[in-house]
Write a protein that binds this DNA or RNA. Sequence first.
DNA 1: CTAACCTACAACCAAATGGTTGTAGATCAG
DNA 2: CTGATCTACAACCATTTGGTTGTAGGTTAG
Lengths: 110, 110
Amino acid sequence: MVVDQLHETELDRLFQAFADSTRRDIVRRVTVGEFSVSGLAALYAMSFAAVQKHVAVLERASLVTKEKRGREQIVRANHEGLQNARRLLDEYEHMWCQRVDRMADILAEG
Amino acid sequence: MVVDQLHETELDRLFQAFADSTRRDIVRRVTVGEFSVSGLAALYAMSFAAVQKHVAVLERASLVTKEKRGREQIVRANHEGLQNARRLLDEYEHMWCQRVDRMADILAEG
DNA sequence: CTAACCTACAACCAAATGGTTGTAGATCAG
DNA sequence: CTGATCTACAACCATTTGGTTGTAGGTTAG
């Protein structure tokens, strides 16, 4: 099996993490530059604590890292985690394409 | 913006739909063949109604279709929806790679 | 030192999720 | 026709989620 049991929890966290537009936006932002948590919080119409939670979700999914710098906490893209995410999504897509193409062939033959 | 506002809801539903291992498994199964809802339900250690709900989530995310055949409801892969999902995931991956690579370059230069 | 700022964390709340059971309507087999 | 099967749907429940406010501690600026 391409997608084995070991990856299941990883996929759960990954898809879960991306299943929120604020979190997707945070990922987008931090892949382009650095942001403190409060810097991120300023961007959205919600409380600091809410953004803090979103960052925590992304951190648990290994998509971002936090690093203390003075009184601020700097949020950065976790490149390793993002590459891994990319790999997992690639595997998933590849699986579909194989199967979907195979079905298409079967339908064409029939 | 590559990922515009129109896609946000779509992405929400897509990632949400994939954020459950049972649903991912259902997608995997129906891309390889046909299953009635009860046929699917027999595969998992949960009630028929639970599986019915999972199928409903996948249907709302345009990943599968249901078609009545006699007293059964046949669940099939929604090829169009899956291709669209693939496209969206590709866009997302591409965005990361661009940004992550750009950051890598900046770091290498610095 | 003091005040402002950034963060962590707890407590709380409403709504969504993932599951259950139960009921009722179609459809098929005998 | 009758009984078994497949489905739809409602009601309910526990947990998670996405949000809030409030409190407290560390850090920086003046």
